[in-house]
């Protein structure tokens, strides 16, 4: 059962990732990207980590994908993408990917992560929270500051002047 679900999820995730890269229509590409991200959430569910899976869904699918859709719909295509496309680049990309996968694969197989214990209990989200607030608290603070400053920056960029009415007499 788990194997078949895993296979289906793998096909869905990788397939939609390829579609997201290859399809012409940007909207369909971002929909495919959403599917990829949902597939990753499915992997987390299989790994008994519903907390991470739900965050994957609500943050990546719910927010990041919306931002991508927003950008794609509102900004003219030529402004975002400058299309440079030829065969050799594609093959080089595929080759690079194969090399990377092989490298990462050998590293993982060489490390102690060969077997997986499926009987252990699910990661408790309370434990995650505790770790965040104790051992990883500096990292948390730095992340929060970066996010806050980027929000402020985005608001500054997005601020606009009102349309001025030149007809009024006073």
């Amino acid at each position: 059962m788990v194997d078949s679900v895993f296979l289906a999820l793998s096909v869905l995730t990788i397939g939609s990732a390829i579609v997201a890269l290859e399809i012409r229509s940007l909207i369909y590409g971002s929909i495919a990207l959403m599917l990829t991200l949902s597939g990753v959430a499915g992997f987390f569910l299989l790994l008994d980590a519903p907390f991470v899976a739900m965050f994957q869904l609500s943050v990546y699918v719910g927010s990041i994908a919306v931002l991508i859709l927003f950008t794609v719909m509102l900004v003219r295509r030529e402004l975002i993408f400058n299309k440079v496309e030829d065969k050799r680049r594609r093959y080089a990309g595929i080759g690079l990917m194969v090399v990377l996968m092989l490298g990462i694969g050998t590293i993982i197989i060489g490390s102690g992560l060969k077997t997986m214990d499926t009987n252990s209990a699910a990661v408790d989200y309370k434990k995650i929270g505790e770790d965040f607030l104790t051992y990883y608290s500096p990292a948390l603070i730095v992340m929060a500051l970066i996010l806050a400053s980027s929000i402020v920056g985005a608001m500054t960029l997005a601020r606009r002047e009102d349309v001025i009415d030149d007809q009024r007499a006073d």
Partner: peptide, 25 residues
């Protein structure tokens, strides 16, 4: 009845704006 039911609610709510904006487009 998932263990993280409330988070699942947030995840589901996150889908509605995507559907709205996609159909609108």
């Amino acid at each position: 009845n998932p263990n993280v039911g409330l988070l699942a609610v947030f995840a589901v709510i996150g889908f509605f704006p995507i559907i709205a904006v996609l159909t609108a487009w």
